[in-house]
Design a protein around this nucleic acid. Structure first.
Lengths: 231, 231
DNA sequence: AAAAGAGAATGATCTATTTCATTCTCTTTT
DNA sequence: AAAAGAGAATGAAATAGATCATTCTCTTTT
């Protein structure tokens, strides 16, 4: 399931991540000593909501779906995590438990970094602390947005939002729609799969998009934005 | 609407907040120089969602309702902010805009602290940074919980949650229920006022609580917890 | 004291969305 | 090549909860 390997060659590339630029040599050494590089295959779980968390994950390569789980196998998708992002930061401080689940959407290369290493560095390097705080703020803002969409908008608006979000990833990851199925879109929009399928067809009839095999070609962004706004 | 005043006497008490204990004298001086103490009356707005945010608020005394706003005057309540908590921390780093609104539930005494002061101290004092990060984590965890309640539970479970939450505040603030009206409970549970009223009556008939004038006396916490869990 | 207004209570209707049941269309397995 | 299975598509029925309309009960205003 996971392949663990670690070489100096690999190590060189992670230092180059902008997030680690503020670290001193000593601190880089600390991270280096307490990290493991892991490869996940498509569909593998990176974190499981509710599980004990002793490490933080840092995505080097690949895409990861972040989602929360409810009863009866229900899920709600929060975002697609991209290279350069952390997973499980919140568990470093408050409770030792993952707030959410994460699963590999593509093959992924990920660092596992021990919580204590991160914590230790923040304590001594305020600049690194600030960069981590920024991550928290982003997650926070995302959650506020998601909450508002979920509570104040209905079906059409929420699916429009979802489509716009995925479309925005398409520039960097052209095959993103092909990696997701109807169930994934439904869980982003917080609606049932059947409603998603029906609504996609309606959107297609209204010339907002074209359903082409597994791909979805967005044709009228501004109209989708309007739907997102009004509904 | 707001009364601004600042005396050395007032100042002495804010240093005693546990959150500011890790600061050096120099840093305390910095906070001191860039803060203003403000008094809000019941019903006054402390922050307005979407407004420009150049400062952070720190609640010294009183209770504040934190909520998000949607279209058509709809709101969703997140929590009751208590003395010792910050308001608007996220705006310090990511975008300069308040993610949420906050309104005084009782008369409040609040510090306004300039963002730059907070930011400067975090950069130099890792320990203070950690304590601030903890705040972010708490807000984060709250948002995850709220999201799950809203999406995976229905009416009964959500109202049960709300009642348990407010009840948990009752130890410290015995008159908390009297400060909230049906609309507030509805907005915590994310349901309509009418549904809230009807459901409260059902809960009363089922001996889970007693509606006594404006107060609500919770009688069967464990049954409410069960309802919260199942639905 | 009368009038007005806000919040609470209650029943009837309406509706957005889910759930269920079925068919279709591929891809994968045997 | 046949069989099996997963995802997608589609219509009909069911339902949770909102909305609407009205009454009731206080408190506040005049």
């Amino acid at each position: 399931m996971k392949t663990i390997y670690e070489t100096d060659q690999e190590f060189i590339c992670d230092i180059q991540s902008p997030c680690f630029q503020t670290l001193s040599l000593e601190e880089v050494e600390l991270i280096r000593a307490s990290k493991t590089q892991v490869q996940f295959r498509k569909g593998d779980s990176l974190t499981k909501q509710g599980a004990f968390a002793s490490y933080v994950l840092f995505v080097m390569k690949g895409l990861v779906k972040q989602y929360v789980e409810g009863d009866n196998n229900r899920s709600f998708n929060l975002k697609i995590i991209q290279p350069g992002e952390f997973i499980g930061l919140a568990s470093v401080f408050s409770k030792n438990i993952f707030n959410y689940s994460a699963v590999a959407v593509t093959e992924c290369q990920v660092f596992l970094i021990e919580k204590d290493a991160i914590r230790g560095i923040i304590k001594n390097n305020g600049l690194f602390g600030l960069s981590i705080i920024n991550r928290y703020c982003e997650q926070n803002t995302l959650l506020f947005n998601v909450l508002q969409n979920l509570h104040f908008k209905q079906m059409n608006g929420r699916l429009a939002d979802t489509l716009l979000y995925i479309e925005s990833l398409k520039k960097t990851f052209p095959d993103i729609f092909m990696l997701l199925q109807r169930k994934d879109l439904a869980d982003f929009a917080g609606i049932s799969v059947e409603s998603t399928v029906k609504l996609l067809k309606v959107f297609e009839k209204d010339q907002l998009l074209v359903l082409q095999e597994k791909d979805i070609l967005i044709k009228d962004i501004s109209k989708l934005e309007q739907i997102s706004k009004n509904g």
